[in-house]
Simulated scan of single mutants.
Amino acid sequence: MTTSDRERQFAQLVQRVKACNLCPRMANSARVLGAGSGSLAAKVMFIGEAPGRLGADASELPFHGDKSGHNFESLLEQVGLSRYDAFVTNAVLCNPKDAAGNNATPSPAEVSNCSAFLKEQLELVDAPVVVTLGAVSLRATSLISPHNFSLKECVRSARPWAGRQLIPAYHPGQRAMVHRSFANQLSDYQFIAETVRRIGAPSRRRPTPKPGRSSAKVGAAAGLLLEESGELSYFALHKLLFLAEVRHLEATSERLTEGYFVRQKDGPYCVELHANRLPALVDGCRTRVVGNQLMVSLGQQELLANGRAQVLSQSAERTVREIARKYARLTASKLKTATYLTAPMRALLRKEKSLRTNLFNSAVLPPP
């Protein structure tokens, strides 16, 4: 199919979508399909659930304008992908609202009503990689070509489906973050980006550094903080590592590690330093729960020192030790304040103020 043929057929599809009135409760909702959906030559298609009331229903751009859209765009940006090189759509192309006017989950009938439109989009774009965002969109694909994939079992994996690779992922909305954290979703998107790049999809920047090297530096720095400070809360470990990153960057114009630091409700967190990864990242690491806090400490310090020498420079070690001595004994409140007074966090807070929204899960310090 030529480019002009594809564009003509897509324009006709958009007009049919705009004229659709199969779903009564969506009669007054925007039909979110058009030029803003992305490239018709995309190598990857993202399929969400339905346009959000405060997002795509208002902006008429899929995954744009609300918190889900912000998270989605942030995840793409942090793995070097651009939504403009992708095609972004939804299983249901209009916003379903409940009786109170709030977002509602599309009914099976509504998903079925839109299934023919989704099938046409898949055929027109013909992306070799299809990513479903949430259980609703995963089920919607089974109406087009049957499969028995489940989100829980198939997340972060590529499954052959309808002549393509289907990657089930969680929805980027805040409620889904309860079931799969932003850190885990970021790993999912790294897998998506790697899959897309293998088939030659464009990206906005070079691929991010290999996780092995980044994780080794993060683990070495975290271990040194624990060696210098003794037992730390998981909260404090992240804050101290962030302060060390900022101090080293300001002093040398180089990153101490290559880790992702994202904005969470209680300050910056390092994505690589996930609680489940601590034993593998930090030699001799031990954890225990005290009250409602996860506490982290060291056991075999000799092993840690040997591993550290291979990945951290002397100046990096000095910086980490200085940060530990200066900040490790602060209260959680004062430690959080110290991170908020750094230049990267101040810049993000100013942006939040100008946008009048919380930019939770945004990158504070992306990889170099």
Results as ranks from 00 to 15, higher is better:
Val14Ala: 13
Gly65Thr: 05
Tyr327Arg: 05
Leu186Asn: 03
Asp188Met: 01
Ala19Ile: 10
Ala309Asp: 15
Gly299Tyr: 04
Arg206Val: 10
Ala338Gly: 00
Arg198Gln: 09
Thr337Leu: 08
Gly212Val: 13
Ala324Trp: 06
Pro160Asn: 11
Arg263Gly: 01
Arg83Asn: 06
Ile199Pro: 02
Thr132Tyr: 00
Pro106Asn: 09
Gly38Met: 04
Ser82Glu: 13
Asn361Phe: 13
Glu110Leu: 04
Lys119Phe: 11
Val14Met: 11
Leu61Gly: 03
Leu294Trp: 14
Asn292Gly: 14
Met295Pro: 10
Arg308Val: 14
Tyr260Asp: 04
Ala280Met: 09
Asp98Ala: 07
Arg263Tyr: 09
Leu226Val: 05
Thr339Val: 09
Leu166Lys: 10
Phe46Lys: 01
Ala56Ser: 10
Ser115Ile: 11
Val129Asp: 01
Leu226Trp: 03
Ala347Lys: 13
Leu186Val: 00
Thr252Pro: 07
Ala19Asn: 13
Met345Lys: 01
Leu256His: 02
Ser68Thr: 15
Arg6Ile: 12
Ile47Ser: 00
Leu312Asp: 07
Leu359Asp: 05
Leu312Ser: 04
Gln9Phe: 13
Phe235Val: 12
Lys43Gln: 05
Thr319Lys: 06
Cys23Gly: 09
Thr141Asn: 11
Leu240Pro: 10
Ala328Pro: 09
Trp161Tyr: 10
Ala58Arg: 15
Gly80Lys: 05
Leu249Glu: 08
Val32Phe: 04
Ala19Met: 08
Arg213Gly: 10
Glu123Pro: 02
Lys18Pro: 00
Leu166Thr: 04
Val79Glu: 03
Gln12Ala: 15
Leu349Ala: 10
Val88Gln: 00
Gln185Arg: 05
Gln264Thr: 15
Pro24Ser: 12
Arg356Gln: 14
Leu76Ser: 00
Asn102Met: 09
Asn276Pro: 00
Thr257Tyr: 04
Leu240Glu: 10
Leu304Ile: 00
Gly219Thr: 05
Asn276Ile: 08
Pro366Phe: 07
Thr141Ser: 07
Glu254Thr: 13
Gly307Ser: 12
Leu225Gly: 00
Gln314Val: 14
